[in-house]
Design a protein around this nucleic acid. Structure first.
Length: 315
DNA sequence: GCACGAATCCAAAACCTCAT
DNA sequence: ATGAGGTTTTGGATTCGTGC
């Protein structure tokens, strides 16, 4: 009896994507730009910003929206989905053909106020022309204990693309085998040595520690995401010189991951303190000798510099 | 100059506070 | 009773000092 435990429509779609959907611009060697530009826009509303952006202009959107849990004044909505629909409506227009958006959320945290990532996913399925590629489980070991249910140790990241011809740099994010496994696999005649050397697919379960309250990476934002997490997304779903957009920029993790990987970026947030957070995080994670790549942070009045730079790359 | 182990540092994991 | 957590402990990694 053959093993058909994975023979379902979703798996057949994955096989189809493997055959039909993976030949794309990632195959072309892309060059690291001499300097990257990073707009940082505090006091900026996501829908207003998106409406100013050109069609087909952004390769990757990293989107960590408020979870609607009322943990801060920015995290409370009368109608969460009505609000989310406004920015979701602009996403397919602004994304490039090879582009992606990832949206963060947590199924465990079900809001009394209505609206969470499950509802966003349901809304997108029926109303927004985006294609789901993966639901990534961000798994971490550190967290609170529970006594009436299993302690939560994951959040979710849903990955959508605009078209079937999306960019995915698997080799850029492969995970190296540990020495013992690698040694054993290199002896295994059934495995190709060059594949073993490249490492393995990180899978859709990512074990990356959540930032502790006392983490050195903390810059003061309540729900700061680790740079390591955004780094994998930026490497996999964009090329050097591409434009990355984060319109719920929070602490600026996306700006830093873009700097470290030679991508241009726009970070926008309603929070007036965004620039301070970004400056602090850049100092900690991309300053001095950590990062050999040249970059410039821009304010709202200088954003044309960034558009000129990214348009040149597209031409 | 090198080997070694104690001291130190730091981030991850374990452990557990307290406002709601 | 619970928690988009907070603080302490742990253990690996590095530094530092000492004896040879």
């Amino acid at each position: 009896m053959p093993n058909r435990s994975h023979y379902n429509s979703a798996h057949r779609m994955m096989n189809y994507l493997r055959k039909e959907g993976t030949a794309h611009s990632a195959d072309a060697e892309s060059q690291m730009p001499d300097c990257t530009y990073h707009a940082v826009l505090p006091d900026s509303d996501c829908v207003e910003l998106l409406k100013t952006l050109d069609d087909n202009s952004v390769q990757l959107m990293v989107c960590d929206p408020p979870y609607n849990l009322n943990i801060a004044d920015w995290d409370e909505f009368n109608d969460y989905i009505e609000w989310a629909a406004q920015w979701l409506a602009e996403v397919p227009r602004v994304l490039k053909k090879s582009g992606s958006i990832v949206i963060f959320g947590g199924f465990q945290y079900q809001s009394d106020y209505g609206g969470d990532l499950l509802e966003i996913m349901h809304y997108v399925r029926h109303n927004v022309p985006l294609r789901m590629v993966n639901l990534i489980i961000w798994y971490y070991k550190n967290g609170m204990g529970a006594h009436r249910f299993f302690s939560n140790r994951h959040e979710e990241i849903v990955w959508y693309t605009k078209t079937k011809k999306y960019l995915f740099n698997l080799d850029a994010v492969r995970v190296q085998y540990d020495e013992a496994t690698k040694k054993a696999y290199l002896k295994d005649k059934r495995l190709r040595p060059e594949s073993v050397e490249k490492g393995k697919n990180p899978t859709n379960v990512w074990e990356i520690p959540r930032l502790n309250g006392n983490s050195k990476e903390r810059v003061g934002h309540e729900t700061q995401k680790p740079v390591q997490l955004i780094d994998r997304i930026v490497k996999a779903m964009s090329n050097p010189g591409d434009l990355v957009l984060d319109f719920f920029a929070g602490s600026g993790s996306t700006t830093v991951a873009s700097i470290l990987n030679g991508r241009h970026s726009i970070a926008s947030d309603l929070d007036p303190n965004l620039r301070e957070y970004v400056d602090r995080l850049v100092e900690k994670k991309a300053g001095g000798e950590i990062n050999p790549l040249k970059f410039e942070l821009l304010d709202a009045s200088q954003i044309d510099t960034l558009f000129e730079e990214t348009n040149q790359d597209a031409a």
